[in-house]
Design a binder for these strands. Structure first.
Lengths: 192, 192
DNA sequence: AGATCATTTCAGAATATTTTGAAACGAACC
DNA sequence: GGTTCGTTTCAAAATATTCTGAAATGATCT
């Protein structure tokens, strides 16, 4: 029965390279589904996933073919990833093309994403909250005191979140979870 | 000069209710911009913001008018918020309409969002990663060892994130930042 | 300079997401 | 039973987002 080329129609045991490719492909897909969670487009996430899981630098053409996207899209996607700081340029001797490599440490990737999202989303939010708070700050009317309390709660929340992220961003990989998150300004009650 | 009704054409000092309305409106807008960060639609975020900042229960009609959305949209949005657990139903005596109130504690809101997103996004991701890992688990080929290492790093990362979120979700508000985040399984190197 | 190859740009096309509005449904009253 | 008022549903419309592809730009070589 068992032969070097079995006639079994349904793939019985794919060769190692095939399994690797399939694993890579599925990883790219899975990571692409998380795109929303990271606040990037699906293609950005897929491109990043490909660069991460292969570990190798790739150029625009590689992306075009493996992700089946247009040249323009590949260019824009890589530029956006560069802008986020999720990939870096790599030059290859004797090759005119530009290559891109993804950061290989997952904790650094997380810190990069936290930093960018805090900058792009949290900071403007904090600014808005402060402005809004000023609208009713000098008002002693009863109807606004409740409103102000709610606004202040949100403001404190956003501020703590900002500080927490700041700590994570500044920490180095191994201490991130340990040191960075401790004593981040939790709203503790008693003093002693 | 100063009179009970000054003639100045450009609004010099809006009455307190006006400033309150404006503050509410701007808060709703600001919160709506964070919609992407929470993984909900802009309208869901705006509706939640309105219910939060006013502190009062509102019905479908209130939402329609204050948010200028259709009846159908208001219904779907409220149902989605209920589904997320971000609002609760409130019944008013002698009123057929259903009212909805937003959770007032911001840390509880955060925990709710973390719980839902972990369930909807992280859990499927973890499942996928395990499946993918199995594709090349029994493979001793050199090309797959690097791949497996990267996949394992990602798997460990996602697992820790899941545990961390779990702790936050289970913690009660005041201890969330303090106790929940400490000792969450950080990848420490040396033992001593 | 001119030739060649890589990259960027961006208006229009393709997709995906969100919203509408009217009809169907349901629940509370008479 | 029927009527009224409120809610839900969902196909079609409106919007928003992402992608394409070809032309423009830039970069490197002879």
């Amino acid at each position: 029965m068992a032969a070097t080329r079995p006639k079994t129609p349904a793939t019985p045991e794919p060769a190692a390279p095939d399994r690797l490719s399939e694993a890579q492909e599925r990883f790219v897909q899975a990571w692409g589904q998380m795109a929303g969670a990271w606040g990037v487009t699906r293609t950005m996430a897929e491109a990043h996933a490909l660069l991460y899981i292969t570990g190798e630098p790739h150029n625009s053409d590689d992306l075009m073919h493996r992700l089946r996207i247009s040249r323009g899209n590949a260019s824009m996607t890589l530029r956006a990833l560069l802008d986020w700081g999720l990939v870096t340029k790599v030059h290859k001797r004797g090759d005119r093309k530009e290559y891109f490599r993804a950061e290989q440490d997952v904790w650094t990737v997380l810190r990069t994403i936290l930093r960018e999202r805090a900058k792009r989303e949290l900071a403007p939010m904090l600014a808005s909250l402060h402005e809004i708070r000023d609208l009713t700050s000098d008002d002693a009317d009863t109807p606004t005191t409740d409103h102000n309390a709610r606004l202040d709660a949100m403001l404190e929340f956003a501020t703590i979140a900002d500080e927490l992220i700041q700590r994570c961003v500044e920490a180095d990989a191994p201490t991130m979870l340990g040191d960075a998150l401790v004593g981040a300004g939790a709203p503790r009650e008693g003093p002693a």
